[in-house]
Amino acid sequence: MALVRVISSDGAAFLVSQRLAKRSGKLKTEIETFRKSSDNSEAQPEIRIVTIRAEILRLVLQWLQQHQNDPVLPANQNEQDGRGDAEMGQSQWDRDFLAPMDLGIVMELILAANHLEVKGLLDITCKLVESKITGRTVDEIRTAFKLKSDFKGNEEEQTRLENRWCVEN
């Protein structure tokens, strides 16, 4: 079985089957680039992901492993030709997977899924963040995301008027 060593930003290494790793668009490209540049066809690729720490990388690989038999979705919602693939549904496993995570981890996971081009994981994590916004009041959202209003002067009031125009027209 062909393996690839994936190394996180904080130096932890994960040994992963190439078949599984290739479900990430980014890792697939890296593996293929390594293959083209390597004289030894048996050599094990080593890929450093400098923007993802071990805890997050582990979660991505865990998700990939669970979904290794799913159809591969494209990295972008709409491809160059203007036609995207339908979104994947969220399974009970996905819900259990995301349930214990705090919002900060989920947001790190979104950035990681985008960087590694794992469309299905990007879908479910984005939808989770979306659910923290949809149907909430502005104050509730600020509390959930630990945000402070940085509007100055009448900027907030002006934004309210602009939104009002869009809602009423």
């Binding site: 985008n114 916004i133 909430r136 945000l147 209003s149």
Partner: peptide, 21 residues
Amino acid sequence: FVLAYFDKPDLLLCRSISKTS
């Protein structure tokens, strides 16, 4: 990335959270 999953009311709501958003 999350905006891709929003409809019109959500987009407008997000404009009210902060100047940055």
